[in-house]
């Protein structure tokens, strides 16, 4: 038994924890996505083709996971993390609140005031249930659930 273990260790890899991961067969479910629409989730659709032997790969060859997802978005002009201009609906009044897109039912928003009456950010927890109003400038926000219906906790 000992000699068998020794043989395995020597013939394969000596770092056993890594070797178990490396030797497990990788399941490939969906092919590599070439555009955002083909991404099927945090899975094999976000694994690139890899480098050609003997070359320095490009990021499109090599990037995986979230890094690749971000890149696919950038190629289509989409900010996948919703950081640059997340709020683009509504006008901030009680009748027409700013709609804050959320995948989890709430989102923290730092209200900076109205145009011409800016103030330092006051943080509000904006939910989908009722409008949140900045107590300094009176600007109104409301969460807008944009995730899939079955993900909603409401």
């Amino acid at each position: 038994m000992f000699s068998r273990i020794l043989k395995q260790t020597v013939s394969k890899r000596t770092l056993t924890s890594s070797s178990r991961l490396f030797q497990a067969p990788t399941k490939v479910n969906s092919p590599t996505a070439t555009k955002l629409a083909e991404v099927t989730g945090p899975d094999s659709s976000l694994i690139g083709p890899g480098a050609q032997p003997g070359t320095i790969p490009s990021n499109l060859d090599q990037a995986t996971g979230l890094e690749r997802f971000e890149m696919l978005g950038k190629m289509e002009g989409v900010d996948v993390f919703d950081m640059e201009n997340p709020i683009f609906e509504g006008s901030g009044t009680m009748q027409d609140p700013y709609l804050v897109p959320t995948y989890v039912g709430y989102r923290y928003v730092g209200c900076m005031g109205k145009k011409g009456e800016e103030h330092r950010p006051y943080w509000l927890k904006v939910t989908c249930d009722e409008p949140a109003r900045c107590w300094h400038s009176g600007v109104v926000f409301l969460g807008k659930y944009v995730g899939a219906p079955e993900h909603s906790h409401h």
Partner: peptide, 19 residues
Amino acid sequence: MKLKNMTNKVRGNMQLHPF
């Protein structure tokens, strides 16, 4: 985010922030 083609279901399964 204005999702053009990707479904919100897929997006909701991924990490929402870049950190």
